[in-house]
């Protein structure tokens, strides 16, 4: 068989199989919700069974102006009530006036959100940028950009009697619900994620529940 013909057959055969394989590369069709995570952390040395009462403000803190532009307060009441219900289920009694009764732990809720922008393109233009940063599009053209909002709700449990790093008032448990800020969020979805914070933190149960 002539060399050129053999080379052609090889090239066609190899490229066909490579193309078939690459076209089969799995894409999972991830939804916005697939980028949400619930992260919890605690200090194992801390004894949660001794706790009985908690305090939680009736406001969720927005950490900056950008956060307020991205995240509405539409779900604040739902978030606060769901957290309170879970704490109650864990055996905690809510204290509303810290001047009257000093709670064992205090919960603080805060939201932060920011917009990321990713540039894509060819030539020298393919690089990552961060909205608000100092990565202007240079080195030739880029084809476009994709921006997405990323946000997080942080719930921190603080015990003013615990000393950590030489300071009183250590965070003994913390949780973060984070991901892409999408428009398709529902009450049941959000409730499920908030409940998950406590489902994966069974050690939070006070002695009152045992």
């Amino acid at each position: 068989m002539p060399t050129v013909q053999r080379m052609t057959i090889w090239a066609l055969g190899l490229s066909s199989i490579v193309l078939i394989s690459v076209s089969c590369y799995p894409t999972h069709g991830l939804a916005v919700e697939d980028f949400d995570t619930v992260v919890t952390g605690y200090v194992p040395a801390n004894d949660f069974t001794k706790y009985r009462t908690f305090f939680m403000p009736d406001t969720i803190i927005h950490v900056d102006k950008e956060t307020s532009q991205i995240v509405t307060r539409k779900y604040d009441a739902l978030i606060l009530s769901t957290i309170a219900t879970n704490m109650s289920n864990m055996g905690y009694t809510r204290v509303t006036d810290t001047l009257v009764s000093d709670p064992d732990v205090r919960l603080y809720l805060a939201v932060t959100a920011t917009t990321f922008e990713t540039y894509y393109g060819g030539g020298w233009g393919g690089y990552w940028g961060w909205y608000g940063g100092y990565y202007p599009p240079y080195y030739g053209g880029y084809y476009g950009s994709v921006s997405y909002d990323v946000g997080a709700l942080a719930v921190d449990m603080l015990d003013r009697r615990v000393v950590a790093g030489g300071k009183t008032g250590a965070i003994v448990w913390g949780s973060t619900l984070s991901g892409l800020v999408g428009g398709g969020i529902s009450n049941s979805y959000l409730t499920g994620k908030l409940n998950q914070m406590f489902t994966q933190s069974p050690y939070l149960a006070t002695g009152a529940t045992k």
Binding site: H28, F35, D36, T37, V38, V39, T40, Y42, Q200
Partner: peptide, 12 residues
């Protein structure tokens, strides 16, 4: 280190 916890979400 001294911190324990869990991460819940979709993993690829």
């Amino acid at each position: 280190n001294d911190l324990q916890g869990a991460v819940n979400g979709t993993q690829v």
